[in-house]
């Protein structure tokens, strides 16, 4: 790069016009940093892709209509399916979402819009962060003592533990997404003589909806794969059940019991169950995104 002759200005403070050692080093460091970023990204994607390929390769062989529409066969026998687990997971995740999403979103709205700087909000924020770091099995133990010891194993107990697990994610993502909405929009709404609650619900939340939905979907995906807290709350059930007050099966638990058994057929079924779970989450995710895009 040779620059045209500059008009004579104070030469003492002017930057050099030819590449110097400093410039060459800067270019080298730039390449190095870029390379490191690409390498780290690839490294992060490898396990994700590997898991998907592994699950698909192992599970696809056992996947059939019979597998989806039958209840499990006794160990050692060929056949049997995961109908009970699919219905169980849908029910558990559905009820947990019905409990967790409204509470979480409304709490997030409170933290971002109403009590942003209050002591109470800080306490809630702190609790949510702590709750988010609590191992899910501990939440299972809590629900076991709070619910199961009084009313026995049930789908409801399982749903409650899943709802508790999803709460921190929903609360914090809702809050963060609402904080991203520019104050200019809040002021625009208020200046039109719109009451505050309406400005929040119709403008602020509406604007942040895609982000909130993404956070909610992440939370739903996470609880759909939770195993530990279900072991001693929902307990498991080899028969199809839709009762909230009875034990219920679920895909993660089916995967757990099948893959820790001594039977090769069950191992294959565990992989197939995992594949079904992954697909289920994927469908839920895409469905939610399409729904949001239509409305937004």
């Amino acid at each position: 790069m040779s620059a045209p002759e500059a008009p004579p200005v104070a030469p003492s403070s002017a930057l050099p016009r030819q590449a110097t050692g400093v410039d060459r080093r800067r270019a080298f460091v730039d390449k190095l940093a870029r390379g490191a970023c690409v390498a780290a990204t690839v490294l992060a994607i490898v396990p994700l892709v590997a898991v998907l390929i592994y699950v698909a390769a192992k599970g696809i062989g056992s996947l059939s209509l019979d597998f989806l529409t039958n209840t499990p066969a006794p160990m050692g026998e060929v056949g049997g399916g995961i109908k009970n687990a699919i219905i169980g997971t849908l029910l558990l995740v559905g009820i947990a979402s019905l409990i967790g999403i409204p509470i979480g979103v409304i709490t997030g709205i409170y933290l971002a819009e109403l009590g942003r700087y209050s002591k109470f909000a800080q306490a809630v924020r702190f609790s949510a962060d702590i709750l988010g770091g609590v191992p899910s099995i501990v939440i299972g133990v809590f629900v076991y003592t709070a619910i199961v010891l009084h009313w026995g194993y049930s789908a409801m107990a399982g749903s409650v533990s899943l709802a508790i697990i999803m709460l921190p994610t929903v609360i914090r993502t809702t809050e963060e997404m609402l904080k991203l909405v520019p104050d200019a929009l809040r002021e625009a709404a208020l200046a039109l003589g719109v009451p505050r609650w309406k400005a929040i619900s119709s403008i602020v939340v509406r604007t942040a909806l895609p982000g909130i939905a993404t956070g909610v979907m992440l939370a739903v995906a996470r609880i759909a794969g939770e195993t530990a807290p279900l072991l001693f709350t929902a307990f498991g059930n080899d028969a199809v059940s839709t009762s909230l007050t009875k034990p219920i099966g679920s895909l993660p638990q089916m995967i757990f019991t099948h893959s820790t058994s001594a039977d090769a057929e069950w191992h294959r079924q565990a992989a197939a169950g995992a594949l079904v779970l992954v697909i289920l989450i994927l469908v839920l995710n895409i469905g939610a995104r399409v729904f949001i895009r239509r409305r937004g």
Binding site: A184, L185, E187, A188, V194, K198, S202, T207, L209
Partner: peptide, 27 residues
């Protein structure tokens, strides 16, 4: 007492028509 701000701030989730009607609809 209506107000217009320094930076234009139309509601991003609304169409041109909806923006004009926003004050009424939201009320």
């Amino acid at each position: 007492v209506g107000m217009v701000f320094q930076k234009p701030n139309p509601f991003p989730t609304m169409s041109i028509r909806e923006n004009v009607l926003a004050g009424l609809r939201l009320n």
